[in-house]
């Protein structure tokens, strides 16, 4: 689905969606970092409270950085890997929470109210985005961001 000018619109739309998702997710977390730290802690996966703080401080900024660098040719490939890694990490964390039967709010887009569907829905979203990111990586392999 390439236009005459050589722009792959499926890639451009995908990149817009990924950037939008990361900006939205990062904003939700930055608005209330302590609530996001509570969400991270609720997963009970990190061995020490210092790691909870590091994740709470670093992840929102990394999401924003990824959203921007997906559009920068020299950084596009690294941003793509980070994006796929983040989605994979979220999918694994949510799988573990699901297996443990945790009724928690994932904190994915800021703090919310946990329900019994919070984790399965967030898991489905993370797996969907991971699949999309893998497809995107395959689609743009060997190309730079301006193509």
């Amino acid at each position: 689905m390439k236009a005459r000018g050589g722009v792959d619109w499926m890639v451009v739309v995908s990149r817009l969606v990924f950037s939008g998702v990361f900006v939205w997710a990062g904003w939700g977390k930055l608005r209330d970092p302590l609530a996001f730290a509570d969400s991270v802690a609720a997963f009970r996966m990190l061995p020490h409270p210092v790691f909870v703080s590091l994740v709470a401080l670093g992840v929102p900024v990394l999401e924003w950085m990824t959203a921007v660098l997906l559009w920068v040719p020299r950084w596009h490939r690294a941003a793509r890997w980070v994006m796929t890694g983040l989605f994979a990490l979220f999918a694994v964390a949510l799988s573990v929470a699901q297996v443990r039967g945790l009724e928690i709010d994932c904190g994915c887009f800021g703090s919310g109210e946990p329900t019994k569907w919070s984790v399965p829905l967030a898991w489905g979203r993370a797996v969907g985005l991971l699949g999309w990111a893998i497809w995107y990586g395959w689609r743009v392999r060997g190309r730079s961001a301006d193509q």
Binding site: P33, L57, V59, V61, L62, M65, V82
Partner: peptide, 17 residues
């Protein structure tokens, strides 16, 4: 580059915090 992104996020996150 990926390491710079992760480390940069931690530093920026700490500054904002």
């Amino acid at each position: 580059r990926m390491a710079v992104m992760v480390a940069g996020s931690l530093v920026l996150g700490a500054v904002v915090n």
